[in-house]
Design a protein around this nucleic acid. Structure first.
Lengths: 245, 245
DNA sequence: CTAGCTCAGTTGGTTAGAGCAGCTGACTCT
DNA sequence: AGAGTCAGCTGCTCTAACCAACTGAGCTAG
């Protein structure tokens, strides 16, 4: 309609919108043109524009707010979590050990990284970790509410010391994906007390500076989760099925 | 239209299609219902169904082939590469050191993992790595064509020894994202000879079993790439701009 | 004068129907 | 029997209309 090759629109539309963001140096949250404006600019129908936006939204590149506008997305790793989670669940229901694989991925990466942290964490982070373990204790003593969130925070805070935002996000994404699939599949929750003690062990090891001891602490932690996994992972994963995928 | 809540269609459509895959135990490549069939099954218009499919396609969950049908996707980490690459490019053009961050992510993870491989790789893999380094030598002597692909294969083969398919895919995804962004941004290619020697060093270290030496070899390799990065990363990244992304 | 409500206008969400484009497989003509 | 053709599936794009969510200006009541 506007002098374009008249074929293969969809794929290109996404690229052109991306280009718009790149070349405009747009930061997350910056407003994008409205749908009618995009139609004019891209020379495509409303429909095609919307399909492109939907795809970009799925990748976290744009954010669409009904009745408000379209904006540059947060570009978090949320889509990656989504993808990993689905992939894991789908594989699981076909009888593959994908959840275990995901756990091993976390274990491999975290054991590899923990030794670089031993004895190198600033007091400020250590104090924060202390507080988190303390809270964990409380939550474990009570029903165990909110324990997962504290666990997440612990790992996040731990690897913040590596001083790489991206790395931190990736690890959080792995944690999220695992946790989400685990609960969606109705996996058995950990024993709060054991989990708590293991986190304290990790913190102690990192504080005292022993790289090898830290690695062992992490490995034991994951070993515990893994044990729980296999006890509740019968051949027929049909048992329970949540709405969320 | 078909007795459904009459609101909030789009988001749910994706979930329902996912559910279709999960509950059908569909493997990658299995055919999905056609658009008209999905319209009937989901009780939504063509347009909404297509938007949902587009989003799922962007996540690698379905694959759409024009004139042929819709199929369950490969669920590879390709979307994650896409997302990472865009995020990196966008940040770069806003003056952030995202490419360096991505490289450091790779370095952190790979240095963490290499020690677990030292002395543990089966002879079969070592031989394959030998062949790859040899090919690298050839390609370095010639113009340097195909060197990148060999580099990729080297890293992929190396971490195959960790015996976790998912981990291997994640590392490959990081490699792909970095390589793609680096070339798209017109970064300076490595010195083929240096790269070649460093890969041989890594292989030697892994073969001889020295965990620490292996780590050092990896670190030196990445240090080299990093040095190249900073020499060609002026304050104004405007210099060149590719079509892709 | 201000606090709160209302409503018009903007933005995205959904539907409908028509026609275009790529692929397959059976049918036909040589 | 083989090769070309065409009917029919498939997904792709467009147009046009209406629905639904949100904002903000303006009005009303206190």
């Amino acid at each position: 309609m506007a002098g374009y090759p008249l074929a293969m629109a969809a794929r290109d539309l996404q690229e052109r919108i991306k280009k718009l963001i790149i070349e405009g140096r747009l930061v997350s949250g910056a407003p994008l043109p409205t749908e009618p404006e995009l139609m004019a600019y891209l020379g495509a129908s409303r429909n095609s524009v919307r399909e492109a936006l939907k795809a970009l939204q799925a990748m976290g590149i744009v954010e669409i707010r009904h009745g408000y506008g379209t904006y540059v997305g947060a570009m978090s790793l949320a889509p990656m979590i989504e993808g990993l989670a689905f992939r894991t669940v789908a594989g699981h229901y076909r009888g593959e050990d994908t959840l275990l694989q995901l756990l091993e991925l976390r274990e491999a990466v975290e054991t590899g990284l923990i030794s670089r942290l031993a004895g190198r964490l600033p007091e400020r982070d250590l104090a924060e970790l202390d507080a988190l373990v303390a809270r964990m204790d409380q939550q474990a003593a009570a029903g165990g509410d909110g324990l997962a969130e504290t666990d997440r925070a612990f790992h996040a805070t731990l690897y913040r010391g590596l001083d790489n935002v991206l790395l931190g996000e990736v690890l959080e994404a792995f944690w999220d994906a695992f946790h989400r699939v685990h609960t969606d599949l109705g996996g058995a929750p950990q024993d709060p007390k054991v989990t708590c003690r293991q986190h304290r062990d990790i913190l102690d090891a990192v504080r005292s500076g022993g790289a090898i001891r830290a690695e062992e602490a992490i490995r034991e932690h994951f070993g515990n989760i893994r044990a729980r996994l296999s006890t509740t992972d019968p051949q027929d994963p049909h048992r329970r099925h949540n709405e969320r995928v």
